[in-house]
């Protein structure tokens, strides 16, 4: 037998072993932290998840490609592994820590493998153990890759959430919403502002939307353009947009830049903008006559 054939037959034997001992391995793994920490509802759930991983490993072993992390044998468990690493990541575990937990799965199975072997000193036994170690190394890499990707996704999600948190849509009155803008407006943030304002208009059935820029330090032509686009989009949806809080310095810049904000309805303050919207809605606000 050539070396290649030896490796392949060892891998196939390993696959057969994993299939045969599926139940026992799953029972042992279910108590390992990697699974126990994630599948907290019932032990049964953890055992099922373990079985899925054992099946995947058996499939990869039988295909003879022990060290191929792209092996289609892993496809059936990639989603499950993704959810598991997500759960670990949320608990604050680093990808390296998760990989360590995967490595800890090796020894319970290695014990079983040794016990199966009629002659632990024979070369077949050592080859079997070596093949299994290689296979677990591959699983560890697959999990690590999943964890790294899910980390990137987490950062992106948090960045997006931060953008959204920074631009709340507030209901001021029935039919009137406002977005108080604070800080510098860049292109990405302007996009989020526009989308959340328009979504807010739909959600609250608002006829008037106020964009308050009191807290915006500078308005350049790009920001002005975004403001005008937001106003135009709101109008297409059937709502009127009012820009409030243009400070004198900003008004000067706008004029100096030659930006024509005339299609945009402006008011000096948020209060003025609200008063305008209320009067358009036919609502009168007056001080209560003194009863004392």
């Amino acid at each position: 037998m050539s070396e290649q054939e030896t490796v392949e037959s060892t891998a196939r034997r390993l696959g057969a072993f994993l299939e045969l001992r599926r139940e026992q391995i799953a029972q042992r793994w279910a108590d390992a932290p990697l699974f126990r920490t994630v599948f907290t509802v019932s032990r049964e759930e953890a055992v099922e998840a373990c079985k899925a991983v054992v099946d995947a490993l058996a499939g990869v072993a039988s295909s003879g490609r022990l060290e191929d992390i792209t092996s289609s044998g892993f496809d059936s468990v990639r989603d499950q592994l993704g959810r598991m690493t997500d759960a670990w990541t949320r608990m604050g575990a680093s990808p390296a820590r998760i990989a360590d937990e995967v490595a800890a799965l090796r020894s319970p199975v290695a014990e079983l493998l040794r016990a199966e072997s009629p002659d632990p000193a024979a070369p077949e036994a050592a080859e079997g153990l070596l093949a299994f170690t290689a296979l677990m190394g591959t699983l560890r890499l697959v999990v690590m890759q999943t964890a790294l990707t899910s980390g990137e996704e987490l950062i992106e999600r948090q960045r997006q959430q931060l953008l959204e948190v920074a631009t709340p849509v507030i209901s001021l009155w029935e039919g009137v919403v406002a977005v108080p803008l604070i800080g510098t407006l860049d292109s990405a943030r302007s996009q989020v502002v526009m989308e959340s304002l328009l979504e807010g208009i739909v959600a609250r059935r608002a006829q008037y939307a106020i964009l308050d820029i009191t807290g915006v330090p500078t308005v350049d032509s790009l920001v002005a353009q975004h403001l005008m686009k937001t106003v135009a989009a709101a109008r297409l949806m059937g709502a009127e947009c009012i820009v409030s809080g243009i400070r004198p310095a900003i008004a000067q810049t706008i004029v100096q830049l030659g930006i024509d904000l005339s299609p945009v309805l402006t008011r000096a303050s948020l209060a003025d903008a609200l008063a305008y919207a209320l009067s358009r809605l036919g609502i009168e606000v007056s001080p209560r006559a003194s009863t004392r």
Binding site: V202, A233, L236, G238
Partner: peptide, 11 residues
């Protein structure tokens, strides 16, 4: 009833 995404795109 124009949707927000449609309004943004038109603008």
């Amino acid at each position: 009833g124009m949707r927000p995404a449609v309004a943004i795109t038109l603008v």
